[in-house]
Amino acid sequence: MSPLFLFLCFVALLSALGVVLAKNPVHSVLFLILTFFTLSGHYLLLNAQFLAAVNIIVYAGAIMVLFLFVIMFLNLNEDTEPHKPALAKFAAAIAGGSLLLILVAAMRDIQPVGYDPANFNSQIGMVDKLGMVLFKEYALPFELASVLLLAAMVGSVMLGKRETGERNF
């Protein structure tokens, strides 16, 4: 394990914890952005430059900007924080704990399979290779995903449309 990998893991775990533990929602979002950066670092270590760049552009550059946008508008702070009943907290702890249990149980028996140097293609993460794989071997799942995205887009346009008689401002 390279020191760079260990460092990235350390920062990733620390910032992921920061997302959950930060009191201020804006700090949470900023920690989440840092987490995405460390994930991009991991992609780079796995020789997937395209995925790393796209992860930054889509998640850090666009989606998190919208997150931050909404949270700034909501003006959440400790005074307006709704206090959840103890039952809800208890249920959340149980649900989260069982998810952790399942994950640990599933991961426990994994045998890490190293790569085979004989037939390992170090260029597989490059954009042209990735395009070839996506459009030749996985064309159907790729197109299905794009239909799903299109449906989501049409749905959001429908929801955002002004209804007749609504105030135009």
Binding site: Q49, F50, G61
Partner: peptide, 22 residues
């Protein structure tokens, strides 16, 4: 020199807004 140079520039440009927002 990285082989996704154009995407890198694009990514950095899209991050530029955080400084202003924060």
């Amino acid at each position: 020199e990285i082989n996704v140079g154009m995407l890198y520039v694009f990514g950095m440009v899209s991050l530029g807004v955080y400084g202003i927002m924060i």
